[in-house]
Computed example of a mutant assay.
Amino acid sequence: MAVHGTVAAGFEGVREEFALFLADEEHAPGAQLVVHQRGERVVDLWSEGVTGETLLGVFSSTKGAAYLVTALLVQDGVLDLDRTVASYWPDFAAEGKGGITLRELLAHRAGVIGLDAGFTPQELADDRAIAALLAGQRPFWQPGQFFGYHGYVIGALVGEVVFRATGRTLQEWYEERIRAPYGLDLWLGLPESEEPRFLSTLPMLPTPEQQAEIDASPYSPYSLGGIAFNEHAPDSVELEDFANSRLVRAKGQASAGGIGSARGLAGMYAAAAFGLNGDGPLLKPDTAAEFARVHSEGNDLVSGSQKAFGLGFSAIGCLFDSVGAGAFGHSGAAGSLALADPRQGYAYAYTRRRYAYPGGAAPENERLLWSVVRALG
């Protein structure tokens, strides 16, 4: 499969690794890969089936935008990490949640992973609707004692704190402070005018071995994982189809409803950590370090696997050996991954159109990241 785009001198090995992956992948997706070395774009590649300007559902990579807004408001002194959520949003104190701090919420320690009855598709597309319903929800574990991925709802919960503190939605802050000033192709609320550039997510095509693993795995929709991903709801939507809904794209649900490209994701992390277009970095070093610092590590109650989180952001350095300590970013269900690595001086973003097995950062990210680090020397 042909590779399109450009790389700067010294980054030819990244292009070669991208091409090798596409040749090896039985069901090669339409994929995009962009790398910034500090403020300069040094890799801009895409495969057949997409272009560099194609917009895709980035699923939970959306969360990086939500956390960046939150970090900026903390940096500005508008939000205090150690104040309770209920001090901003009184209704949230119901069912024993009054002591949960914003720091604990961001670290996925609140236990408010979903709704007992589940959400309708219309509710799940709307952050304000999610927040209103979760205000009265009891936690699924003792808050602060454990952690688990709040996959569909963390953006709505944090976004409601932002709204109560400022009178403006997280999406409005993102548009004003981040997307519009840098012209980023990463949208929390895709305008109708941009719809022609969007390509829907394609379903996963597991290998026979992967399908056998899926078939053999007992899984209840009423488990913590099932509730967190709304699988117990009567009219639950498959996660791979979430961003294929125009309602989700229009609302810009801040947990998983973002639409963008690798250019947009990499540009956002470059702007956050290093600066972009001649401007300085959005985050001061102390702010970036605090949000990247590991706050939750070990067994994730929702996924049942080992995870590591900073404040919202994934602690990427704990997940990939090639990534430096203090890196921050997030992956998305279709296989995307985006991050900034301040110590090694780069921002990285990878997207793909076909849903990757088993979800989260697609396996090829490991090889692609290593090729970037090698190119950096």
Rank of each mutant, 00 (worst) to 15 (best):
G324E: 08
K284Q: 13
H295L: 02
E290H: 01
T287H: 07
F274G: 06
D321Y: 15
G317F: 03
L311C: 04
A272S: 08
L276V: 10
G312Q: 05
S314T: 15
A243W: 13
N277E: 15
G257W: 06
D321E: 15
A288R: 02
G264I: 12
D321N: 15
A315H: 11
I316A: 09
L265W: 13
G310I: 02
L282V: 04
A272H: 02
R249Y: 00
F291H: 07
S245Q: 13
F274E: 03
G252N: 00
G260I: 08
A308F: 08
L283P: 05
L301C: 09
K251H: 12
V302Y: 11
T287F: 09
R293T: 13
A254H: 07
G326A: 07
R246Y: 10
Y269R: 00
D241H: 14
Q306S: 15
D286P: 03
E290D: 02
R249T: 03
P281Y: 03
G267S: 01
V302L: 08
G317E: 08
E290Y: 00
D300E: 12
A256D: 12
K284F: 10
G304R: 13
G310Q: 01
N299P: 09
D321P: 12
E240G: 11
L282H: 01
G278W: 10
R263P: 13
L319D: 06
D300I: 13
A289D: 04
A289K: 01
A288Q: 08
F313Q: 07
G258S: 03
G258Y: 01
H295P: 09
N299Y: 07
E240I: 14
S305T: 15
A271F: 02
L276E: 02
D321L: 15
A270W: 04
A308R: 06
D300S: 10
A266G: 01
I259R: 02
D321K: 15
D279T: 15
I316E: 06
A262Q: 02
G324S: 12
L311V: 08
I316T: 10
L319Q: 09
A256T: 14
A250E: 12
K307C: 11
F274C: 08
I259E: 09
L276M: 06
A273F: 00
L319E: 07
G298C: 11
G326M: 07
D300V: 12
F320R: 05
N277F: 12
N299C: 13
V323T: 04
